[in-house]
Write a protein that binds this DNA or RNA. Structure first.
Length: 142
DNA sequence: TCCGGATTAGTCC
DNA sequence: GGACTAATCCGGA
C-alpha cells in the first residue's frame, strides 16, 4: 500500500497479495509515499505520461457490478461514456449502472470518472466531484 | 427551453 | 420487503 501526491490531494492504494483491492483519495496521505509496487504507474498517469494501467485488481463486488466495471474499463483514454450507453450494452438500466459504478472500489484504475450523465457530468463519490473534473481534464489535455 | 414527476433495476439494511 | 441511488425520458409551462 502506498500514497501518491497529486497537486493538492493524495491518492491512496491498498495492495493485497500483488493485486489492488481498494483505492481512494484523501487530503492527507494514508500510507507511505515512498514505496509501493505500482506507485510508478500511478505517478506517470497523474503526470499525463501513461494512458493505461498494467495493474491487477481484485474486486470484491457482486457479479453485476463486476460486469459493469469491466465495461467501464474498456472506455478508451480521454473518452467518456454515458450511463445509458453502458446500460444498453449490458441490457440494464442507467440507474443500476450508476449504482454499480459508485461501488467501484478502485477509482482511476477502473476509470469510473469516464462515465458521465448524458446532460452533464453525473456524480462522483470517491472523494469529490472536482476530482472527476480534474481527471477528465488531465486526460483531455493529452 | 427549462423544470418536475414517473420510471427503472440492482444493492443495502 | 422497503428505501435508497454517480440517470433518463417525456410532457407541460
Amino acid at each position: 500500500m502506498f500514497s501518491v501526491f497529486w497537486e493538492d490531494i493524495y491518492f491512496n492504494v491498498l495492495v493485497e497479495n500483488g493485486a489492488v483491492v481498494r483505492a481512494f483519495f484523501s487530503k492527507k496521505p494514508a500510507f507511505s509515499t515512498e514505496d509501493g509496487e505500482f506507485r510508478e504507474q500511478i505517478e506517470e498517469y497523474f503526470n499525463g505520461k501513461r494512458v493505461e494501467f498494467n495493474i491487477p485488481v481484485r474486486l470484491k463486488v457482486s457479479p453485476f457490478t463486476e460486469k459493469v466495471l469491466a465495461e467501464v474499463s474498456k472506455i478508451p483514454y480521454g473518452r467518456t461514456a454515458a450511463y445509458s450507453e453502458i446500460a444498453k450494452k449490458l441490457n440494464t438500466s442507467p440507474r443500476a449502472v450508476g449504482q454499480a459504478v459508485k461501488r467501484n472500489p478502485v477509482p482511476v484504475i477502473i476509470p469510473c470518472h469516464r462515465v458521465v450523465a448524458k446532460g452533464g457530468l453525473g456524480g462522483y463519490s470517491a472523494f469529490d466531484i472536482k476530482i472527476k473534473e480534474r481527471l477528465l481534464k488531465l486526460e483531455k489535455s493529452i
